[in-house]
Design a protein around this nucleic acid. Structure first.
Length: 148
DNA sequence: GCCAACGTTGGC
DNA sequence: GCCAACGTTGGC
């Protein structure tokens, strides 16, 4: 399986990931996205997408370097992402660790992706899709790499 | 800054 | 369990 995760460049960009080398992909508070995070397997490849950006675009590639474990921010009462209903015994939110692979020489913008017939059914391009963690099919993955 | 499309919350 | 009200996401 291949994946795509969204992030706002101002919050955590591909450059931040490059600097950190690897990071816990935490603070996701949506059940559908959480379920996908838990399905991520070691070594699977993940597109990094900058949303709310100029332009919004796929900007690079990461790899799953640890399978999902409890997202520590849910236990931190000072965090915006604190969840009073989560316990260490029964965590509610999970995050895998993603390792930086590469930043693409050219960002692949949303408008460019929309022009590709083979990507019509991509979750990212579905009207109103706000899902921040999405599966990407092998065909979609290859098609996107061919745009570089 | 607007607003469509969702997701979540809470009253009933 | 329904659904109205509200909050958030994210393209434009």
């Amino acid at each position: 399986m291949f994946w795509l995760v969204k992030t706002e460049a101002e919050t955590y960009s591909i450059d931040d990931l490059a600097k950190d080398k690897a990071t816990a992909w935490d603070c996701v508070r949506n059940y559908q996205a959480r379920n996908f995070l838990r399905e991520m397997k070691l070594g699977e490849l993940v597109f990094i997408y900058h949303s709310n950006s100029e332009p919004s675009a796929i900007v690079g590639l990461a790899k799953v370097s640890k399978q999902a474990f409890a997202d520590q921010t849910q236990f931190d009462s000072k965090s915006d992402y604190f969840d009073a209903k989560a316990t260490k015994e029964n965590p509610r939110w999970f995050s895998p660790e993603l390792k930086f692979m590469k930043k693409f020489k050219k960002a692949i913008s949303l408008s460019e992706l929309k022009k590709i017939p083979g990507l019509k059914n991509m979750t990212l391009l579905k009207l109103g899709s706000r899902l921040s963690v999405q599966p990407v099919s092998e065909n979609e993955f290859k098609t996107i790499l061919s745009l570089l």
